[in-house]
Amino acid sequence: MRVTVKLFATLRQERFDIDTFDLAENTTVGDIVTKLGIPRNEVTLIFVNGRHADRTTRLADGDSVALFPPVGGG
């Protein structure tokens, strides 16, 4: 299945803004985060097709995943 991944803010550094991947059925968001080598604590906001999701969310063909790092300063 084909899944589009969009990265935001610091997650883009040395990676990409947006890319498409061929993935095995039943792949989860967590699998993608691992595949991209993003440390666990660097992704805290996850969206699949614009809906709030989490690492355990299973992906389907044509899905679009958006990953954001935490921002906490003031």
């Binding site: 803010a9 610091t10 604590n41 805290t44 790092p69 935490p70 921002v71 906490g72 300063g73």
Partner: peptide, 10 residues
């Protein structure tokens, strides 16, 4: 909800 850290990218 998935942020266990005290600080973020800052």
């Amino acid at each position: 909800r998935d942020c266990a850290e005290t600080k973020g990218v800052e």
